[in-house]
Each structure stands twice: as structure tokens, then as C-alpha cells.
Design a protein around this nucleic acid. Sequence first.
DNA 1: GTACAGGCAGTAT
DNA 2: ATACTGCCTGTA
Length: 323
Amino acid sequence: MSKPLSHPYANDYSYFNPEISINSGQMFLWEKHGSSWYGIYGEYVLKLTDSRSTTLVKKNEHKIAHDNGEIKFFSFPPYPYWERQVFRLDDDIDEIFSSFSNDVLVSESISKYPGLRLMRQEPHQCMVSFACASNTNILMIRRMLKNLCTRFGNKITIDNMKFFTFPSAERLNRVSNEELRLCGLGYRTKAVKAVAEAIVNDSLNIHSLLRLPYDDAKNELLKIHGIGNKVADCILLFSLDKLEAFPIDIWMARVLYLDYRWLFNNSNSNENLIRNRKLSYEKITAHEYRILSKKARDYFGKYSGYAQQYLFYNARQRAGKKW
DNA sequence: GTACAGGCAGTAT
DNA sequence: ATACTGCCTGTA
């Protein structure tokens, strides 16, 4: 599944920072207890303990998937070397970073937030998560997803704490719309149901989506009710290995309009687009999305998604947001 | 009360 | 093709 680690930091986990990566808004179901993070990854509960800040690492009855020096990685059930998969340690981070060396803001953000990385999510969970993400805020998304897990997931006790795995597509597809709605999904109920149904009847096949090129995979996703441009790009970037995806939410639109205005100065029609925008609080139209997306992806290149993550995090920090 | 939050689909131009 | 509008829900 994962390539062997070949870059210079292959055995040095200090170059990525789980704390900042988990907290950068791309993931929803991770919680910190003590010096450990616990994350829901489909049917798994992942745990990492940063023993750099503590002298004692608590031994427990769960299988140690991997123990690599300063940060210890566990999972239940066992999932050996999940950190390589989830934290994308198979990416050539030096090549990725150097591809942005001409861009001041991304380069600054890379050195300003050391250890921030993209994370690779479980695809079904990622699809449902972002199907819940339209027109709401991150706290609400977390709540909806936690509700889905506690109602329909499996309970696993770790370190005397209860965790609930993410409900499978089969399970969600069997659940009635009324039951789903009780999780606080509102009108997103239909979207979640559509995702679950598409996976169960195989009109969405994760294996083939992984193999398809970006555009084709995106077109498949867009056929699902509740999945539009932004949600599709999030799914492609965060779970289907399409690093050229560049999700544009309201925050990224602000970044593009404020910090990358010059990108749109070439053509007159794009000038109008910018001038007509009152300020950066309007919702993004489909037309706008297409133009912004093309410009950004042409400019940032095949690792656009990484640039997006740094710019997004920087914009949120700049605004003093704490999720 | 009412504005707002990591968009989207349906409908009208 | 592009623009306009309503929408679940909880919080400020």
C-alpha cells in the first residue's frame, strides 16, 4: 500500500507534528486525552502518544502496532504502520515543498507551521464527513459525525474510555432517514444517505476512484446528491490521493481574492469577477469556483492540495479562529 | 428576533 | 450556461 520511506527524514518523526496536523481542520473525529490523541478511522480507533513531553508511557492491553522512538502509535484493531498511511509519510515532502519555493505566502506558511501535513482519511468516512459539511461550521460537523458514530458505530473501550467507530456504508444505508436526522444532520440527511447508497450499490467504487485521474474521479463524485465542487475536492484531496485537488471554501476564496489578486489580473472577465464581489463573505457561485479553481491549480501545480492546506491553516490562524 | 456558519440542488432567467 | 433562493440546526 505505502511506498518505503525514502526521503531524508524517513526515520525522523520530528519533522511532522501530529498536533497541528490534526488541528488544522481537515479531520473531524480526533480527540486529545492527556498526552495522547485518539482518532476514528473507519472501523479502527487510532491512538498516538507523544512521549516527548512525558517521561512515562502507559502500557495498556492493546496491541502496539508500531513503536518508533518519540511518538508511539497504537490502534485497535491492530493496523501496523498506520502512521505512514494516515500522515502521508510516503510523500516526498522535500519535492513538494520545493515546488512552492517561488511562492512567498506558501513558503512562509511552511516555515511558520512546521510539521503541518495533509492527512489521508478513510474514504467512506471522508465522503460522509464532507457530505455533512455544507453550510455549517466545524463544531457542528463534529457533532453530527459524533452522533452518527455513537448511534450507529461499534463501541470500543480503550484506556477506560469509550470510543465509537464510524458506521459502515451498509449500516448507514439501512438506517431510516428519520433516524439519521436525529443526529442533527438536517437537510444533509439526503446527502449522507446518497453516499451510503452509492457505495453499497457500487455506483461509487473506492478502489476505482483511487485509480481514476482527478477529473474523472471528480465527475463520478459530482453525480451523488449533496456532493458539489467543494465537497468533491475535499474528498479527492483528503482520501483519494488526488494531491492536485484544491478545495475552495469561503476561506480559500478570501485568500485568493486578498492575497492572490494578481493571479486574476490578466483577463478582463476575471477582473469583473473580482470587482463585482462586494467583500469576501458571499457564497461562491459555480462559475466563480471554476475560474478560481483553474487559476489556482494551474499556478500551484500537481501538489496544489498541499498549498491549499497551508494557506487554509494560515488564513484561519490569521483570523484568530480556534475551530 | 436574526445573522451566521468550511455549499448545494432546484428553479427561473 | 449563469443567477437567485431556500435550507436544518445551534450559537451569539
